[in-house]
């Protein structure tokens, strides 16, 4: 049987050195606004769908994205967000955040982007490791029971760095 090697290295031109390949994305989420949470989720999910490993570290306000009671109530930031193209004072009016959030969710539905709870399930099923920051949990008086069941554990910054050491590891702060 005649076979070729076109499907492996030759396909992309030059053969890549092992150190040039992205092996794992370590993504730190420190914010709770919907646009940041989704950015981090999509980056982690996109890594896995390319065959790249991914881990997420939820710290400070990022912990809201994995709190059972809060994760479905995240909002788009309308104040201090120049991309809103509305005066800051208008962004602070009651109902503005809810309005902007529902507009964004409608657009995301059209693109088949899942809601936060389902996105977390997809990430976990895809093999993304989900870690909570110990210090931030202590600061916000959170217990493990307050967080999603799919959580892989609670880590210190040092633990997280350990997991991200080695060639081909990349860290992203959102």
């Amino acid at each position: 049987m005649e076979t070729t090697t076109v499907f492996t290295s030759k396909q992309n031109g030059a053969i890549k050195n092992e150190n040039e390949v992205i092996k794992k994305m370590m993504i730190i989420l420190s914010k709770a606004s919907l646009e940041n949470v989704y950015a981090a989720f999509i980056l982690a999910n996109g890594a896995r769908s390319e065959g790249i490993e991914a881990e997420m570290f939820f710290t400070f306000f990022g912990l809201e994205a994995i709190q059972k009671k809060k994760l479905e109530h995240l909002h788009v930031a309308t104040v201090g967000n120049p991309a809103m193209h509305i005066p800051t004072m208008l962004g602070g009016l009651p109902g503005m955040e809810a309005f902007a959030t529902s507009m964004m969710q409608k657009e995301m539905d059209k693109l088949d982007i899942p809601p936060v709870h389902e996105f977390l399930e997809i990430l976990s099923a895809s093999g993304v490791k989900l870690w909570a920051c110990k210090l931030a949990m202590d600061m916000f008086h959170l217990k493990k029971e307050d967080l999603i069941d799919d959580l892989d554990g609670v880590l210190t910054v040092g633990d997280f760095y350990q997991r991200g050491s080695g060639p081909g590891m990349h860290m992203l702060f959102v």
Binding site: R48, S49, E50, G51, I122, A125, S126, G127
Partner: peptide, 17 residues
């Protein structure tokens, strides 16, 4: 197939593989 098994069947990126 569920997502977990999908990744197990095609580990190097299920959809693209």
């Amino acid at each position: 197939v569920d997502i977990k098994e999908f990744y197990q069947l095609f580990p190097a990126g299920p959809l693209k593989t």
